[in-house]
Amino acid sequence: MASSGRDCCTLCYDDDGSSREAVTWCTECEVLLCTGCEKHHTKSKASKDHKTMSTKDYHNLPKFMLEISSQCRDHKKKFELYCSFHACPCCVQCITDKHKKCQDLKPLSDILKQVKSSASVQLFEKDLKNVKENLEEIIKYLNSRMNTNNSQKNKGCRTNSIYEEVDR
């Protein structure tokens, strides 16, 4: 990223050091793309089905989402498999380094497809909806209590001022 506060195209910068302004972020390649590179990216057979988002939307993502990567930090290779024993994604190099004896390795793409349609995700969504509704009720109740307290406080102030006038 350039010091001017704008995003530079990752591909152009890595290729020839140029700092063309990025307009999109590819969620799969994890690169920022300028208009020209985005055009080639959407036409390329290898990346035409990739999901992209505007750089503005990318920067509005929560911090924890920005820290998620589809590449192995140790080997800088794309995660391709999932180790059920260790409950973690693996790149090809991880398998030879850390998972030689692991028996239950599955394609990561299969695992990700199952996650979205699993019952636990649907239950989680339902739980989140219930929590949201409960919080909305709590906020209504607290606002009501604050209004009641404020009106009683104002009544008390008016009552006190009447007594002060009588005492004079």
Rank of each mutant, 00 (worst) to 15 (best):
C83N: 09
A2H: 08
N143V: 00
C83M: 08
S54M: 01
S70I: 11
L135Q: 15
S19P: 00
D167L: 13
K76Y: 04
K39C: 10
K98I: 05
C157Y: 07
V115F: 12
L105N: 09
S3V: 05
E28T: 13
K106G: 00
I139N: 05
C94L: 09
L112W: 10
G156A: 04
P89Y: 06
S84M: 06
C12G: 02
G17L: 01
D97E: 15
T42G: 06
T42V: 15
K116F: 02
K100T: 14
S69M: 02
H40W: 07
R145F: 01
N160S: 07
V166W: 08
S144R: 08
T35F: 09
G5E: 07
K129A: 15
C37W: 06
E38V: 03
M65C: 03
V131N: 03
N147C: 03
H99L: 03
A2N: 12
N150H: 09
K132M: 04
C91I: 08
E67V: 02
N134T: 13
S151F: 01
T35D: 13
S84G: 02
T52V: 14
H50S: 07
C8K: 07
N154C: 00
G156Q: 02
G5Q: 05
N154T: 02
G156Y: 03
Q103R: 13
K51A: 10
D15E: 12
F79L: 04
D57H: 09
G36Q: 14
Y13N: 15
M65G: 00
E137Y: 00
D167K: 14
N130W: 07
Y141S: 06
K77G: 01
S44K: 11
Q122N: 10
S109E: 15
H41Y: 10
M65H: 07
E38R: 14
L112C: 13
C37Q: 05
D14Y: 03
T159V: 13
E38Q: 12
V31Y: 06
H50C: 04
L108Y: 07
Q71D: 09
L112I: 14
Y82V: 06
E164G: 07
E137S: 11
G156I: 03
E137H: 04
L142S: 06
K116H: 04
N160A: 11
D49K: 11
T10H: 05
S151P: 00
S54E: 04
K100E: 15
C37Y: 04
F124S: 10
Y13F: 15
D57K: 10
S69D: 01
C157V: 13
W25K: 07
D74R: 12
Q122R: 08
W25V: 04
K126S: 01
T52G: 00
I95L: 11
I138M: 12
C37N: 11
C83V: 08
Q152G: 00
Y163E: 10
E80D: 06
T148W: 03
P62G: 08
P62K: 11
S4M: 02
L66D: 01
S47E: 01
K126I: 00
K155T: 00
K63W: 01
H99D: 07
Y13H: 14
I138A: 14
C94I: 08
